[in-house]
């Protein structure tokens, strides 16, 4: 199951807070995080990588979809 987290429009640090809470609530699941700015992309990626997640980012229409895969998955 992929958990969707839509944090578009939120300014720093809300995207990080919401992603962190989603990670803690679903520690073994893949997360798909939608962010709107390069800053949010960097901050969410840094958080995920610090927890051992691998991060894949795709850009469409000025928005970023970050796929966060937990370690060992």
């Amino acid at each position: 199951m992929v958990i969707e987290v839509d944090v578009r429009g939120f300014s720093c640090p809300i995207p990080v807070v919401k992603t962190k809470q989603a990670i803690e609530a679903n520690p073994k699941e893949v997360l798909s995080v939608l962010v709107e700015t390069a800053v949010s992309r960097e901050n969410v990626s840094r958080l995920a990588e610090s927890k051992g997640y691998s991060v894949e980012a795709t850009e469409t229409d000025g928005e970023y979809r970050l796929t966060l895969t937990p370690p060992g998955k």
């Binding site: 720093c12 640090p13 990080v16 807070v17 962190k20």
Partner: peptide
Amino acid sequence: TRMCFVGAWRDVFLVRDFY
């Protein structure tokens, strides 16, 4: 670099991020 003199302390305590 997104430098921030308040966010610096916030990130340390919120997500243990020292960037």
